[in-house]
Design a protein around this nucleic acid. Structure first.
Length: 417
RNA sequence: GGAGAGGUGGCCGAGCGGCUGAAGGCACUCGCCUGCUAAGCGAGUAUGGGGCUAAACCUCCAUCGAGGGUUCGAAUCCCUCCCUCUCCGCCA
């Protein structure tokens, strides 16, 4: 949610910022400005009427108490009441339209977000393996440890059974990530994955990505596509004392995505599936600390990738590809030998005050109260990390060497031996 | 799933349909006082939105789980929903 006061004070700056996402986006601001004007024209009229009615009600009360007749005053009140109701309805209607115009507007991009249309490669790290043989893809390498046939029969396309050693790798990855994050001050959380609409609205996934979200048939509940949704709601409607910030959480949960509109894309293996597990970072920080926190989260993502010996590059995502809530986003893309290119593995966003405004999460500094800033980032997207580990650790005989660090968390040293 | 109780300010808790934005207590802040890690005294301490402002102050409106309704007037009455607790049932 954008700040109405800012829009009012400096509409040109807001319009210019939105225009970086596209001219069409910036044009949507005009409706908001118009409705805000209507609203503020109406409010003084309504409130003056209410003040008069409140005063008249007191007069009636006093008359009643002293036993006087108030029939005339009561009749007048009844009439004023009808007018009040009318104006109230009018205001409610305007506010509803204002909300409908304002809520879908995306966050203002950070000035350092990549201008687009292309993402901006910031750096390349790690060694791309020079394989003296034709690389296999993750599905070949996993063999029976990934069973998509039975998953497809049972649940449909884009589902998988993970079996045997790969399960141990998954658990090792999760444990590795959670302990690392804890060391960085993130509190581990296993959140609910079924949520009400408000949580999705509050995080900006609604109205924006509805076609991506599973909805239950018999209950007003949705399956989250990321634990970000649940972590953001942890301080829903709170005023947090500044001394408590930053608040950092590491969520571990399954994630569910419909992948509608992705038909035909990444259909082989578990790169793009409807269900996967993920360890996610989420931070609540002071407004002027979010830029630094964003770099911090990115650094943790890179630390994890380095320790897993994965070759990757960091990209600054183009403003035209930013989700609604992000002001700036970095992706870490991992090298996949079978595809001979970098693919998205982790992602971190600074959502500034966009989600906080929607979820009504504020910080109190001295006497001042203002929306705080929230950020999120992937620590480990388990499925894709497994893909990366398999492909980059593969040997000519089809076995896979896993990074040493995972052994400490229960993963085997070699897969498929 | 069945039966019942309840949701009031940071917390506890009182609230007859009008004088309650809300008693009282706790906590916190500031001041006073007291020579001994505390007590006493005084004052203050919600949020959002308008207006006026450079800002503060001030002022008005709204808010007693949420949304509707009754009424001249609702924290108080009615309806729907949400949540919490207790008992029963079921269950990993």
């Amino acid at each position: 949610m954008l700040d109405l006061k800012l829009i009012r004070q400096d509409p040109d700056a807001v319009r210019a910022a939105l225009a970086r996402r596209g001219d069409e986006v910036a044009r949507r601001l005009d409706a908001v400005i118009g409705l805000d004007g209507e609203r503020r024209a109406l409010i003084p009229r309504l409130e003056e009427l209410r003040a008069q009615r409140n005063e008249a009600a007191d007069t009636i009360a006093r008359a009643k108490r002293s036993g006087e007749d108030a029939t005339g005053a009561i009749a007048a009140q009844r009439e004023a009441g009808a007018r009040e109701k009318e104006l109230s309805r009018e205001l409610a209607e305007i506010e509803e339209r204002l909300e409908a115009a304002l809520a879908p507007l995306p966050n203002l991009p950070d000035s350092t977000a990549a201008p687009g249309p292309e993402d901006e490669v910031l750096r390349v790290a790690g060694d791309v393996p020079k394989l003296p043989f034709k690389p296999r893809d993750h599905l070949d390498l996993a063999g029976s440890m990934i069973d998509m046939e039975h998953a497809a029969t049972m649940s449909g396309a884009r589902f998988a059974y993970l079996k045997g050693d790969l399960v141990m790798v998954e658990l090792a990855l999760v444990r590795f990530a959670l302990e690392k994050l804890r060391g960085h001050g993130f509190e581990p959380v296993v959140p609910p994955v079924l949520v009400r609409e408000r949580a999705l609205y509050g995080t900006g996934f609604l109205p924006d990505t509805e076609q991506q979200i599973y909805r239950l048939a018999d209950d007003e509940l949705f399956l989250v596509g990321t634990s970000e949704v649940a972590l953001a709601s942890l301080h829903d409607d709170e005023i947090v004392a500044v001394e408590r910030l930053p608040l950092r959480y590491a969520g571990f949960s399954p994630c569910f995505r419909r992948e509608a509109g992705a038909a035909g894309k990444d259909t082989r293996g578990i790169f793009r599936v409807h269900q996967f597990e993920k360890v996610e970072m989420f931070s609540f920080v002071e407004p002027d600390a979010s830029t630094e926190e964003h770099e911090r989260i990115l650094a943790i993502e890179e630390e994890i990738l380095s320790e897993l010996d994965l070759p990757y590059r960091v990209v600054n995502i183009s403003v035209t590809d930013l989700g609604n809530s992000a002001a700036k986003k970095y992706d870490c893309e991992v090298w996949l030998p079978s595809q001979e290119r970098y693919r998205e593995l982790t992602s971190c966003s600074n959502t500034t005050d966009y989600q906080a405004r929607r979820l009504n999460i504020r910080v109190r500094r001295e006497k001042k109260i203002a929306p705080l800033h929230t950020l999120n980032g992937t620590a480990v997207a388990v499925g894709r990390t497994i893909i990366a580990l398999l492909e980059n650790g593969q040997r000519e005989d089809g076995t896979v060497a896993l990074p040493d660090i995972l052994a400490a968390y229960g993963a085997p040293a070699v897969l498929g031996a």
